[in-house]
């Protein structure tokens, strides 16, 4: 059996399993490694608690401080918009919720399709804007690595193929849906081994920072 339907059944079946396994192995291996390596012991007497400042920093570093905003308003605003858009499309689109329910058994209410559709369109435009900005801004272009472009491409592909599939702009539909699922699987596979890991480590790192500052009794 070949063709579009065969492709869809393959990405929904064996390929999904492979991607999920690589993702789980890779991510947990990296997290366990990070936690087991830990931090160098600090023999100084703590001046204040760690938990409070740690948790506070998890939030406070999520919102850019006025200085950063002034220096790079584009990065802050566009970065926020596409991250939120991506999360809404990922977590609140009903077919995606069915997927989480099928794999994890967990589910939650979703948003109506037209809302997710609009958010997805905005996400696509802002993602394009980030690429243009990256190529146009001399400093950003300088510091961009191949990995940065690779990660941008896979994130963009996931959103774009999802948009194309939802609007049935590629015929036959099983091909469109298959491409979307395959892009998402490639993203899952890349996640533990690229900067995409920040999805899981960003908040841990913020906690570490805040906790360290809290211990020293400085503001974070």
């Amino acid at each position: 059996m070949s063709g579009a339907m065969g492709f869809l059944l393959w990405v929904k079946g064996p390929m999904f399993n492979i991607a999920l396994a690589i993702f789980a192995i890779g991510l947990i291996a990296r997290l366990v490694e990070i936690f087991l390596l830990g931090r160098a012991p600090n023999y100084a007497e703590p001046r204040a608690g760690e938990w409070g400042p740690g948790l506070r920093t998890m939030l406070s570093r999520t919102i850019a401080d006025p200085g950063t905003f002034k220096r790079a308003p584009f990065n802050v605003v566009v970065g926020w918009v596409w991250h939120i858009g991506f999360l809404i499309a990922l977590l609140l689109f009903i077919p995606h919720i069915e997927l989480f329910k099928g794999v994890l058994g967990l589910y939650w209410p979703g948003l109506p399709n037209p809302v997710v559709d609009l958010v997805t369109a905005v996400t696509l435009i802002t993602l394009l804007a980030t690429l243009v900005h990256r190529l146009w801004h001399p400093v950003k272009r300088r510091i961009s690595t191949t990995e940065d472009y690779l990660v941008w491409t896979i994130v963009f592909m996931v959103v774009l193929t999802g948009y194309l599939a939802y609007h049935r702009l590629v015929e036959p539909y099983p091909l469109a849906l298959g491409m979307h699922i395959l892009s998402a699987e490639l993203m899952l596979i890349m996640l533990p081994f690229t900067k995409l890991t920040h999805i899981f480590t960003a908040f841990i790192a913020r906690w570490y920072n805040g906790a360290a500052f809290g211990r020293k009794g400085v503001q974070s």
Partner: peptide, 25 residues
């Protein structure tokens, strides 16, 4: 539903995580 993968359960995730934990350690 169409979006649900075939023959994939949280078992895959848990087993993967277990292997990952050993590898990470």
């Amino acid at each position: 539903p169409v979006s649900v993968p075939i023959g994939v359960t949280s078992k895959t995730l848990i087993e993967g995580a277990a292997v990952g934990a050993v590898a990470g350690a």
